[in-house]
């Protein structure tokens, strides 16, 4: 766990992409790449490492993967699962 990702560590994440937030009671669904990114941020991986690993698993260009990863991190901030000042670097 890294600083600022403790909320992500509390999430119950199913392999199907169904996510339960035990603090808010909210549920989410994510697709496989999003689940992959979420778990990577939770585990403390940086942006380059996430993009590299995504590149090994999904057929997309590095620029797209980088943009999508940053966009997903922003959505996690917006939904309160990451602190508002969290930056993925």
């Amino acid at each position: 766990m890294t600083a600022g990702t403790d909320r992500l560590s509390q999430l119950a994440i199913s392999p199907s992409g169904f996510i339960f937030d035990p603090r808010s009671g909210s549920t989410f669904t994510v697709n496989e790449p999003a689940r992959f990114i979420l778990e990577a941020i939770r585990d403390g991986l940086g942006l380059d490492a996430i993009v590299k690993t995504l590149n090994d698993h999904f057929a997309a260009g590095a620029a797209d993967l980088r943009r999508d990863t940053l966009e997903f991190a922003r959505r996690l901030r917006d939904s309160g699962l990451l602190p508002t000042d969290f930056e993925l670097v």
């Binding site: 035990p22 603090r23 009671g25």
Partner: peptide
């Protein structure tokens, strides 16, 4: 503790889930 997931028009909980808060 429980969070309401669905409400009736009267604001009564129609579904809910236990939470850690």
């Amino acid at each position: 503790p429980m969070k309401k997931l669905m409400l009736t028009k009267q604001g009564k909980g129609w579904a809910g889930v236990t939470i850690h808060d």
